[in-house]
Nucleic acid binder design. Structure first.
Lengths: 248, 248
DNA sequence: GCGCCTGTCCCACTGAATGGGATGATGTGG
DNA sequence: CCACATCATCCCATTCAGTGGGACAGGCGC
């Protein structure tokens, strides 16, 4: 046996864990095997082992990610420190606007949402804490890109095309380049239904006080029919992002 | 070689990840090896493998937990769903009190903090999102214990002693039993500097609408010198916890 | 320069991981 | 109530991926 596909136990274990990444909170063994591409018996053995570590849990229907993963996830230093510094400021912003407040960092050509807070009538948005979105179609992404160490040059140059999420997504590289110029000039980025229809957003970069490079970005997003417009929320977002940068 | 200590790769990998659990955001290879009890070369190999998966990251000084762990941690269903339902209510509670608001569940004879929000003057508390505390010395713990499916009987019976955190910690089993009675009667639990000196807290259970068992608990905690007292915050905590239970 | 400490790499050895398939458990519908 | 399908669990001979002692390299202080 041992089909010798040159993969370690660990790679396989993470493939199992990753099976839960795409919106499936609970999977049967069969589904786990299918998604991870591993043989049934191997899947079963690994799942039992992961469960022994608390990384998976068994439920009536199958398997789900376990509490141990939650605990470990909270220990990740970068996100933990960032959130700690930002949360109070985010509360202020929520109190001032009543809209969804998001905190994100750039991670490998994508926006990674670190924290999202919002109220009862929270807008149905494609973002999720720990989730990812493209840089080019979100206010947060544009703020991060405009104030990345190379001003987004590498990103723009390495990209053959900008995929559209809605009819309003900027798909033209030159247009995005111009947009980033304006973001740099105003220290504010906007999303005018470019990521999802009915959703608008203002973001401001959190700049390192020494290097002027964005370490994170802060945003407020709202439905198009909200009483608050992005332009109205912009000053508050900018102020809070600047305060956060100073506090770093 | 192969000292045959009967442990799998996975157990060992998790031992490495666990090395970061006790307040060490960053460790050198040597420290990792020491904490995990693994040979240096094994530690090195596993760390490199974990880094390839994004579970660890290298920094100038050594190793830290990686972004992949953060992402996976956010996918854990129980905590994710609970937080989603509770966050808006927690915001209300924060707006009303201006103090630290905590959400927790019981997990294996301990309190597990699922979410904590607070403002700028956040009290220095021993709790951390993803952290744990004993059930008997926290308001959250007592609320969870009093409304667990067996009313805390198993916990009380299996415990030889209740370790003291401060001079005010309840260490007597009979006293705790009485305290839980009162918690059940009032649907409120208090912490009068029992977990940390200078820190007081009110908690209310979030009850399953059918079974009347606590699925979670909500609390507000404050410094002893805060203008707000636990008794004053209690009605708000109770109201919000009840609303949360109904919304489930 | 000379120890000393830590990180990285090597490689011969072997027992732990592997997966096809048998066996149980569960559920469905006729 | 049973036949049948589906999915979960277990078994075990085979073998290669994991192992860890030790060698080597690089940095730091004295």
């Amino acid at each position: 046996m041992r089909e010798g596909n040159g993969e370690g136990v660990m790679t396989r274990a993470f493939r199992l864990l990753d099976a839960f990444a795409e919106g499936a909170p609970e999977l049967t063994l069969e589904e786990l095997a299918a998604r991870s591409g591993l043989p049934r018996s191997t899947t079963h053995r690994l799942a039992v082992q992961l469960a022994a570590e608390g990384a998976l849990e068994r439920s009536r229907r199958g398997w789900r990610l376990g509490t141990r993963m939650f605990e470990l996830g909270q220990l990740v230093a970068r996100e933990q420190r960032l959130r700690e510094r930002a949360l109070a400021h985010m509360q202020d912003l929520y109190a001032a606007t009543g809209e969804t407040v998001q905190l994100a960092v750039a991670d490998g050509d994508e926006v990674l949402y670190v924290e999202i807070i919002g109220g009862h009538r929270r807008v149905k948005s494609p973002s999720r804490r720990g989730g990812r979105m493209p840089l080019h179609c979100t206010a947060l992404g544009k703020a991060l890109l405009a104030f990345s160490s190379d001003g987004g040059r590498r990103y723009l140059d390495s990209r053959p095309a900008l995929p559209a999420r809605t009819p309003h997504t900027i798909t033209d590289l030159a247009a995005l380049r111009a947009e980033l110029h304006s973001v740099r000039a105003r220290q504010l980025a906007f999303d005018r239904e470019e990521a999802a229809l009915g959703l608008r957003c203002v973001a401001a970069p959190v700049l390192d006080s020494r290097t002027r490079v964005a370490t994170a970005a802060l945003s407020v997003s709202m439905a198009t029919d909200s009483p608050l417009t992005p332009a109205e929320a912009a000053p508050a977002v900018g102020t809070v992002a600047r305060a956060l940068g100073r506090a770093a």
